[in-house]
């Protein structure tokens, strides 16, 4: 289906014949089908194609309400007589007018001015960003440190863990949580600066106390 090339006289003639016994492209009310075809036509059809001209003028009268007309715009090839193909725009340029632009981002139509403005804004934003002291991203981490057995000295273990010092690392409260068979694990809170301290580094340092620590897990990790 289609009208051939709607920008050519032949295409308009197909449209004219198509509209001879119809008031609208589809059905009996103005719809997005009419708007789609209307927008594909550059100028009013010539007077001798009176069916097309009548339709054109009629649809033009709906211009203000065109967004509220029912239906969904389809490719031009979906309308019109069954035995004609749509070739509108195929020869003129590469603009794929068959696509429905769902996101309304039409880069081609971005005017020079808008582009300049956008670039200016971007540059402004970049410079602002570089000047402003970056917000320090911090995280609160809850660690589970498990001892080897029930004979491990938990006080000593905690002391070892708290002995780890690093830039951007602050230890918080801790408690002992029973796991079973008399074994307790150490649950300890710490606040770290994301850029400076990672969980990998913490794990490495804590498991380094091999005499006391069997393993270490991150129980909770919250961005502040």
């Amino acid at each position: 289906m289609g009208f051939g090339d709607l920008k050519s006289a032949a295409g308009l003639r197909v449209l004219n014949d198509f509209l001879a016994d119809k008031s609208y492209i589809e059905g009996y009310v103005p719809s997005q089908a009419d708007i789609a075809v209307f927008e594909a036509i550059a100028a009013p059809p010539p007077a001798d194609l009176f069916h097309a001209l009548r339709w054109y003028n009629h649809i033009k009268s709906y211009e203000k309400q065109k967004a509220s007309l029912p239906g969904v715009k389809k490719a031009l090839g979906k309308y019109g007589p069954a035995d004609v193909e749509d070739t509108t725009g195929a020869a003129t340029d590469s603009k794929d007018d068959d696509d429905i632009d769902l996101f309304g981002s039409d880069d081609e139509e971005e005017s020079e001015e808008a582009k300049k403005l956008r670039e200016e804004r971007l540059a402004q934003y970049e410079s602002k960003k570089s000047k402003k002291p970056a917000v320090i991203a911090k995280s609160s981490i809850l660690l589970d440190v498990k001892p080897w057995d029930d004979e491990t000295d938990m006080a000593k273990l905690e002391e070892c863990v708290r002995s780890i010092q690093a830039d951007g690392l602050v230890w918080g409260s801790s408690k002992l949580v029973p796991v079973g068979y008399g074994i307790k694990k150490l649950q300890i809170q710490c606040v770290v600066e994301d850029d400076k301290v990672g969980t990998d580094m913490l794990e490495e340092r804590i498991t380094a106390f091999e005499d006391y620590v069997q393993s270490m897990d991150v129980a909770a990790f919250n961005k502040i």
């Binding site: 008031s23 009176f50 069916h51 009548r54 339709w55 003028n57 009629h58 009268s61 709906y62």
Partner: peptide, 11 residues
Amino acid sequence: LEDKVYLAGNI
């Protein structure tokens, strides 16, 4: 009706 959709034109 040749150049009109409704008798009174467009409405």
